[in-house]
């Protein structure tokens, strides 16, 4: 199901298209109403391209073809799209010292997340796995000259930490280039912005994507904004609660100091890389975010808020204006 609506109270009219992809909410905002239909088509084209190469739940995705072919341990030639998706994932790993690691596929499968997320709602039978470090991102070898990939036999990739944000960046850039208007693309709260109107795009910040009672809001005029947390994508395994953020060191869900981390960056991929890494790093994330100069808002498990590198403090009073509700 998808909806369209216009926002009000702005100097520049914005039109919203809303739908659902990959078990998550998709929002598209353009500043030119006449561009919405074409922008929607571009968005879905980009999402389809990413889905065909990187969806690990899709039997015919190129990623799963790579997994099958890589059992021999030889280099496999891949499409430019998958090559770029892998390069983006390895860059994220390199820039976070391996905190964001794409080789967590087998680890997250051991936790039962080997199917579309809605199928986990009833819980997964045990046993609960023991700690086992993931193969590590350096075991994935890319050869740009020949567009080949080498995986160690048994390595399964999960590009979830970067592919969604990468898709948001690609879609926003493609729409802005072709339609020449301001664009915001949000894929499950991973937000990419191009050609923002004066005053920027206004975005609520909450534990859960789409929460109409977001406790704070910010405006952004470029790049990306992403939020990682443990508040939404969780299930039970053998009766124990687990979530989707995996610690590469032990292959188990991270036991983070944070409930939610939101980061603003020059792109959505970089924002999501940093927010995911911050969940893994725990308390060390504050110094790390300051060091790399990325504005961020971190919420402890008790709900205390910490802001770094220029992210504005939460308002003392609750926001007077709440999120625009989705039209049924």
């Amino acid at each position: 199901m998808s909806t369209q609506q216009a926002t009000s109270g702005r100097s520049a009219p914005e039109v919203i298209y809303r739908t659902s992809v990959w078990s998550t909410r998709v929002d598209l905002i353009v500043t030119d109403a006449s561009a919405l239909v074409s922008a929607t088509r571009i968005l879905h084209d980009e999402l389809d391209r990413v889905d065909r190469v990187a969806n690990r739940f899709r039997a015919d995705s190129e990623l799963n073809t790579l997994h099958d072919a890589a059992r021999s341990g030889v280099g496999i030639e891949v499409s430019p799209d998958l090559y770029e998706a892998l390069a983006v994932a390895l860059r994220a790993a390199a820039l976070t010292g391996g905190a964001v690691d794409p080789t967590v596929g087998a680890a997250i499968n051991r936790l039962g997340y080997d199917r579309d997320f809605p199928l986990l709602a009833a819980g997964v039978p045990g046993p609960f796995p023991g700690p086992l470090a993931v193969p590590g991102w350096r075991s994935v070898v890319l050869d740009a000259e020949h567009s080949t990939v080498v995986l160690e036999p048994g390595t399964l990739l999960d590009l979830g930490a970067t592919a969604k944000a990468w898709a948001a960046d690609r879609a926003a850039e493609a729409i802005a280039d072709r339609m020449g208007c301001g664009v915001l693309v949000s894929l499950g709260g991973d937000i990419a912005v191009q050609q923002a109107p004066e005053g920027g795009f206004h975005v609520g910040i909450a534990d859960i994507c789409g929460d109409p009672d977001a406790p704070t809001a910010v405006s952004i005029d470029s790049g990306g904004l992403a939020t990682s947390g443990i508040g939404n994508r969780h299930w039970t395994l053998d009766g124990r609660p687990v979530h989707h953020l995996i610690h590469p060191g032990n292959g188990l869900p991270v036991e983070s100091a944070w409930r939610t981390v939101s980061v603003a960056a020059g792109s959505c991929v970089d924002a999501n890389t940093a927010s995911t890494a911050s969940m893994v790093l725990g308390e060390d994330a504050v110094d790390w975010l300051e060091g790399v100069g990325l504005p961020a808002r971190l919420v402890t498990l008790d709900g205390d808020v910490c802001t770094v590198a220029g992210w504005p403090a939460d308002p003392i009073e609750p926001r007077a204006l709440r999120a625009v509700p989705a039209r049924p």
């Binding site: 970089d270 790399v292 625009v324």
Partner: peptide, 26 residues
């Protein structure tokens, strides 16, 4: 290039405007 994570042109500013989009974990 793995040189560094890119910072935004400017940090987010606090907003009191309506927010059709909410970033959160998904």
């Amino acid at each position: 290039s793995p040189s560094s994570l890119s910072a935004p042109n400017s940090p987010p500013a606090q907003s009191q405007q309506p927010t059709p989009v909410v970033s959160g974990s998904s």
